[in-house]
Amino acid sequence: MANLLKNRETQLAAVIVLMLVLIAFVNPDFIAPSNLLSVYTESSILIILALAQMLVVLTRCIDLSVAANVALTGMVVAMINSQYPELTLPLVIAAGVVLGTLLGMINGLMVWKLGIPAIVVTLGTMSIYRGIVFLISNGEWVNSHEMSLAFINTPRTEIFGVQGFAIISLLIIAAIYIFTEKRPLGREMYAAGNSPTAAFYTGIDVGRTQFWAFTISGMLSGLCGYLWISRYAVAYVDVALGFELQVVAACVIGGVSIMGGIGTVLGCVLGALFLGVINNALPVIGISPFWQMAISGSVIVIAVIANSRAERKVGRIILRKATLARG
């Protein structure tokens, strides 16, 4: 029990619950189950991208190009849909996912094969991918009436009152959980990030795990490209502008260590939900929109301080006395 209380995920969940209680004082409707569900639905894309980012960060890299990837794949699927409305939706989505995967692979290859630091690679591809959105669209928008109804409405379909967006994110959470807990590649990402040297000694190719982390990140970004466009029913160059920082922030708040090797699916999801609740609650409880940015900034700072205290390296315990005292 004491262990559970010390657990970072429990603490974060407690903070979120506390926050909801406080919000409920101002606006009781906010914690109505239907509204909480819609807050979750609204956070779906952030959750998926945060999980993708977590895999990359686990391997000691960072992917700043996710938002640009979302914009590019989103524009491409929107353009395909508006030009060929008769094309079946699964095919359109598949095109987005494949393109996103390829974009992720480009990042991954440069990190793996050329050994360029991930931050430099993705800083570059971030500009390039977003620039390509402009080139292919010629700066023009794809508007809702140019998209097919199936394209816009499929993720909105409700199953037992839950929207497709939420269901997809739940499936992705489950998939990433299985991947990180049950799949060798998932475990190797933890190992590679925790100690690249030890990983090498155990026969794990660190660069390869990084490549796959970027690939999965790209794949999920591609999926989110479609989700984003159908959610807001418009595609343009500045889609998801600056979203990469929110995604990284969600990971950081969720306890994913930027130094690699540490982070859980649950923590990451909670981190994204935390930001999701703040984003959705501030306008509702009537805090001036001008305060939003400062509040989320402070939250990030506080979260990293809290995490760093929790993570603080415990010295190698040599003394038996100390061992006993701790046990």
Binding site: N27, D29, F30, N35, S38, E42, W228, R231, Y232, V234, Y236, D238, V239, A240, L241, N279, N280, P283, V284, G286, P289
Partner: peptide, 15 residues
């Protein structure tokens, strides 16, 4: 921004 405008609109209806 489409996403922020969207959220603000939803909040308006809720509030």
């Amino acid at each position: 921004l489409a996403d922020k405008s969207y959220r603000e609109a939803v909040a308006l209806m809720k509030n």
